[in-house]
Computed example of a mutant assay.
Amino acid sequence: MDLFSRSWSALRAAVAGLADEDFAQPSGCAGWLVRDLVCHLVIDAQDVLITLATPTEARPTRDAVTYWEVADTAPTGEDPLDALIVRLAAAYQEPRLLKFHLDDVGSAAGRAAALADPGLRVGTRDQVLTAGDYLSAYVLEWTLHHLDLVAHLPHLADPPTEGLARSRALLEEIAQGAYPTSLTDRDALLIGTGRRRPTATEAAELGGRRPLYLG
């Protein structure tokens, strides 16, 4: 729960530090500019609020690992929902409005997470998880999107080291195998989710392992 808060706070702080011109730069998400990614984070924050306010008595059907769906192909940005995010982001027109909305909704999501009972069962995407597992899954979400945010903005700080380490461990559980120890946590996440192509040496160490496209 604490790691969720630290990862989310760091990501929101990075967005707060963006200059207006940074919003027009590409992000690490295929087909999305930084402004589109920030708009997606607003939707993510809303999802956290909705999920934590959707308790259920049903038995859990997923945990922090099985929460994730793994696609066979890399995202292109042409999915209808991805395209909708681009149109929503453009509607803000001014970066300060996006910053304000993320700070407003994002702060509320952070408070709700801090107050949540880890054992509370919640419903999301037609599945049931404990709040603790749901928020643990979102550590990976925040960390990957933090890497997406800084992909072409090297002046911004990387995600917290503990968030990178936990996200790598979670990704390795999803992949059902560890990544080479020669890879840093950052590189394991970027290569493991198809955000960066491995070098020839890295590819040899990976042994033909395919990236995971998470959704």
Rank of each mutant, 00 (worst) to 15 (best):
Y92C: 03
W32F: 14
V105P: 12
T124Y: 14
L81V: 10
Q93Y: 03
V34E: 03
A113Y: 08
R96L: 10
V105T: 15
L41A: 06
D133G: 02
D104N: 09
A90M: 02
V48M: 13
A71M: 13
Q127R: 14
Y67M: 10
T130L: 06
D63Q: 05
Q93T: 15
A74N: 00
L135K: 08
G110A: 06
F100D: 15
E69N: 06
R121V: 01
A89C: 08
L84F: 09
L98A: 11
G106C: 11
D103P: 00
G119I: 00
E78M: 05
I50W: 11
W32H: 03
V105I: 15
T61W: 01
Q46D: 12
R121A: 08
A131P: 06
D72C: 00
G119D: 15
D79G: 04
T66V: 01
A58H: 12
A53T: 06
L129I: 03
D63I: 05
C29R: 05
V70R: 05
E94F: 09
V48A: 07
T51C: 13
P80S: 01
A113S: 11
G31A: 01
V86K: 14
A113L: 04
A131D: 12
A108R: 15
A131M: 02
A74D: 13
L33Q: 14
S136Y: 01
L135E: 12
V70F: 08
L81A: 06
V86Y: 00
T73G: 07
D72Q: 14
A116R: 01
W68N: 03
T61E: 10
V86C: 10
A53K: 07
F100T: 13
A114K: 07
A113R: 03
V48H: 10
Y138C: 03
A116W: 06
D82H: 08
D133W: 04
A45P: 05
A74W: 01
P95D: 08
S27P: 08
T54N: 09
P95G: 01
A113D: 12
R59Q: 13
P75Q: 09
G28W: 14
D47C: 00
V65G: 04
D126Y: 11
F100G: 04
H101N: 08
L88Q: 14
Y138A: 00
I50R: 15
G106T: 07
Y67C: 04
T66P: 02
G132F: 08
A58P: 02
